[in-house]
Design a protein around this nucleic acid. Structure first.
Lengths: 222, 222
DNA sequence: AAGTATAGTGTGCTTTCTACACTAAGTCAA
DNA sequence: TTGACTTAGTGTAGAAAGCACACTATACTT
């Protein structure tokens, strides 16, 4: 089967930067390319957009197919279209980034360790195509959004403690935050509520568990 | 001539939202569609991306071809790709927005008044495709960026007065600003310098002329 | 019962934001 | 030439927000 057009058409793909927090580190999910070009190199998950699906649907589909991840926060990042970014043909990619909670059951990265793996942002391998550029922009966007939105909540499981949330902020920002000021700020947003439960985590006072009031919404603040 | 591919490819276009300030109003440049679909309807300038040009180059080329505008501030806005947004075939559009200074010599909108025209944001006609959605997002982005960047400077000619700049802010935000606080804020950025000249504009004290220190840069502030 | 580890809480100082009113410098008309 | 008019340009004080900082509470362990 072949598809013909009166004038040349580029290929359109989506690529997805999937962040999570594991082992006290911001990590990104990469897949090992099985085919040329860049065979054997690590790359962002993604692929061609079908004609009957929206861009976001395409991104979610690729994400599910290649990594088993679904139902996560997904946001469009930027569209990359340098003419030479793919050696095969002209390929324009609409990049998305996704945030997945820390307690998500181990995904394909664990079971199929050959082809899919988490990488810490400080131990990145060489990436295929311009994926390094995409990843860098995603990280910048994430850091920026921490300041003026509740995007960090998307990393948290349904119930979480304030020290856990603070740790997420500190990992992404790369700096320590004052505990009291952090709590004041978060609580004053009025976007988390106590569950009444506590999390016991060792030989010390247990922390109160909270949950997000609008777990699926990312709100702009301040 | 015909172009064939092993699997279906969408068409990729750029559409450009061009803002300026005229007659004390935020205006956008629209073109009247000469061909179906939506023949006779107003639409954003834009068109198909060539295979040998980047997305931004494509946007600049279309902008120049259709409106005569060039050398302006251009930023990628968002990529729109609903499967049914164009009745002919699957079309994905990478939307950009452009800001042009108020003193730019009259562009094609003036000479070819049939096909190209400025519209105030409160007197918009029905727009083709999903262009209304694109335009609304561009306006939101502009309003947001006013707060944390020097994007408004892109509306100003090489030399401008602080009251003129304030008026631009007020028009876009739709609210009055305090003159003293506004001046303090702008001057404290250290991004404008006095030219030593003044603008006489009627039967009253003349205003000092300033110019931007980095006219081509949009800086993130605060 | 004492030791240890993390959770949880309040205050004062500094900086930033906001509201607000008069003088300066030009033109125009009587 | 002078007074009326119009817009440009300037400072300050009170309010709010941001920031630094140290001790008590509660669990577990030995």
């Amino acid at each position: 089967m072949s598809y013909s057009y009166d004038y040349p058409h580029p290929a359109v793909t989506t690529d997805i930067v999937i962040f999570t927090i594991r082992q006290d580190e911001l990590k990104v999910l990469l897949i090992k390319r099985a085919l040329p070009p860049h065979q054997g190199a690590w790359a962002l998950p993604g692929g061609f957009v079908n004609l009957d699906e929206s861009l976001e649907e395409g991104a979610r589909r690729e994400l599910a197919e290649e990594t088993g991840v679904s139902g996560v926060y997904l946001e469009q990042l930027y569209t990359f279209g340098r003419p030479d970014r793919d050696p095969r043909e002209r390929v324009i990619t609409v990049a998305y980034y996704a945030l997945i909670p820390t307690d998500t059951i181990e995904i394909r990265a664990a079971t199929d360790a050959e082809g899919v793996s988490w990488f810490g942002m400080n131990e990145l391998p060489e990436l295929a195509f311009d994926h390094r550029e995409i990843l860098d922009m995603a990280q910048r966007r994430l850091v920026d959004k921490l300041d003026y939105s509740t995007i960090a909540f998307q990393f948290m499981p349904k119930e979480f403690t304030l020290p856990e949330l603070q740790q997420v902020y500190e990992l992404i920002l790369g700096e320590a935050l004052d505990k009291r000021n952090f709590r004041k700020r978060i609580l004053s947003l009025g976007l988390v509520m106590e569950t009444g439960k506590e999390r016991k985590a060792g030989a010390h006072r247990p922390a109160k568990l909270y949950r997000s009031i609008h777990p699926d919404r990312v709100e702009v603040i301040k």
